[in-house]
Design a binder for these strands. Structure first.
Lengths: 144, 144
DNA sequence: TCTTGACTTAGAGTGCGCTCAAAGCCCTAG
DNA sequence: CTAGGGCTTTGAGCGCACTCTAAGTCAAGA
């Protein structure tokens, strides 16, 4: 399988695949007769797993630690399990935070439904000057 | 309240508060006699809300859109509600993805518990060469 | 045969969200 | 009165994860 095919099958770009190889997240790919990268099914599965880790917010440096343990063989199983389960715990904690914030959002959205009630405990129903009335500089985020 | 006090109460740094003001996320603060920023309770509440949006992964450019609608007054209520509820939907979708990825993680962690079973469908139980056996360059992520 | 397009490399650039540096002013405790 | 620390500004720097450019090689279809 060529790098472009692998890209299509995994949903990441060929650029990113090369980048992952460069930093050590992917093994050095085997090359075909003309020096091009040639992949097997295992690459699809491994990238799929990396993508899942990424979905859960794992930083690349941690994926790298995982990949290196993996490369050291079966004896690192417990270490890998520990790495993953610590990560899982962090993700669950983060998930709880998001849920809690979402509840606040739900309340606020529901509040907008009721014809512009001005709850004094709802800071967002105050209308102080949030934009930039002076001509003061704003960075690239300012245009919008 | 001085910027340092506000920083302590909101959990973001004074640097970040000034940055938020610069890009328009916070209103221009009132100054005391000696030209220093002076804040009220409303700033604590507003930053708290921004932090919740941040927790849910809203990019600053969207917070900015929200802040600008807010500054335009009560008539933008429906637009603000729309913005928030679209965001809420995205967050919920992302949450579902994370949950699904977590399930995979759970399975893998459980798999490590069973004395190194080699499931052929589990790519991570293969041990191909994942690190950099040649002396090829790696960027800053490589050291670890 | 020609052309198109995918591939190769090293290295530079991007977007996000801060984070810090430098140089100087001002308030307060000792 | 003095020292320390917090405040002010402008502008640069950083960490992350890509993302793209330039210049070139190569393979396969019309």
């Amino acid at each position: 399988m060529k790098i472009g095919d692998l890209a299509k099958r995994t949903g990441i770009t060929a650029h990113t695949i090369r980048y992952y190889e460069r930093i050590g997240l992917l093994p050095h790919a085997h090359r075909d007769g003309s020096g091009r990268r040639d992949y097997g099914e295992d690459s699809v599965v491994w990238i799929g797993f990396l993508s899942r880790l990424k979905t859960t917010g794992m930083p690349i440096r941690d994926m790298l630690r995982y990949a290196k343990l993996r490369a050291q063989g079966d004896s690192t199983g417990p270490a890998r399990a520990a790495l993953l389960s610590e990560h899982r715990d962090r993700v669950r904690a983060h998930l709880a935070e998001i849920h809690s914030a979402l509840t606040v959002l739900d309340t606020k959205i529901a509040g907008y439904g009721e014809t512009e009630r001005m709850d004094p405990n709802d800071a967002d129903n105050t209308k102080d000057n949030i934009t930039n009335p002076t001509g003061a500089r704003q960075n690239r985020l300012g245009r919008d």
